[in-house]
């Protein structure tokens, strides 16, 4: 039983942080939420802890987003500032700016496409994603294909915007 616990932690915690981070965009907060989810899993002992953790995490992130919507808008504005000041060429963009651009691209996806993409990236299988999102298993691949394409397009067009803005 404790080995299970450690296994679940080992395989899930970092992915859970990553998943949450792309929802709350605050690394420390994402870690806190992941720990909270993990603590709840310890208490609840769900049958499939990994899927369960992501369901709980998604809910927590949603609550979090509601609570901090205003604050986040502010942060987004701040985070946008470097770009408005004069974006550098693609290679010279620092990590933060790239992250911000990916974030914007992700936010242009539909909620469902984004969720499926993030769950996949967090290591969930098609089956797990299907049961979590209510999609048919066969629709997961299609959704992922669309989400990936749109992410790349959105990122590319953001880069173009930046290029145009630069002049």
């Amino acid at each position: 039983m404790p080995d299970d616990l450690a296994d679940v932690y080992r395989t899930t915690f970092p992915a859970l942080v990553r998943f949450l981070y792309r929802k709350v965009w605050d690394a420390a907060r994402a870690e806190d939420l992941a720990q909270e989810a993990f603590s709840r899993a310890l208490a609840h002992r769900p049958e499939n802890p990994r899927s369960w953790l992501f369901v709980v995490a998604a809910n927590m992130a949603r609550d979090e987003a509601r609570r901090t919507a205003r604050e986040r808008r502010h942060l987004t504005l701040l985070a946008n500032e470097p770009r408005e000041r004069g974006p550098s060429p693609e290679d010279a963009l620092d990590d933060e700016l790239r992250r911000q651009r990916v974030r914007e691209a992700l936010e242009r996806l539909t909620p469902r496409d984004r969720e499926v993409l993030l769950l996949w990236d967090a290591g969930l299988s098609y089956d797990e994603i299907a049961s979590q999102t209510g999609l048919a298993r066969t629709a997961v691949g299609t959704t992922l294909a669309r989400a990936r394409r749109r992410l790349i397009e959105a990122y590319g067009s953001a880069s173009e915007d930046a290029h145009v803005a630069r002049g």
């Binding site: 990553r18 690394a27 420390a28 990590d95 651009r101 990916v102 790349i152």
Partner: peptide
Amino acid sequence: LIESAERLLALAAPPATGRDLRGVPR
């Protein structure tokens, strides 16, 4: 396409630096 998407997502990985944890009182 998949590789590109994964590269993009990797760019949006949580910043893993000490500064993020030091401030967490819990």
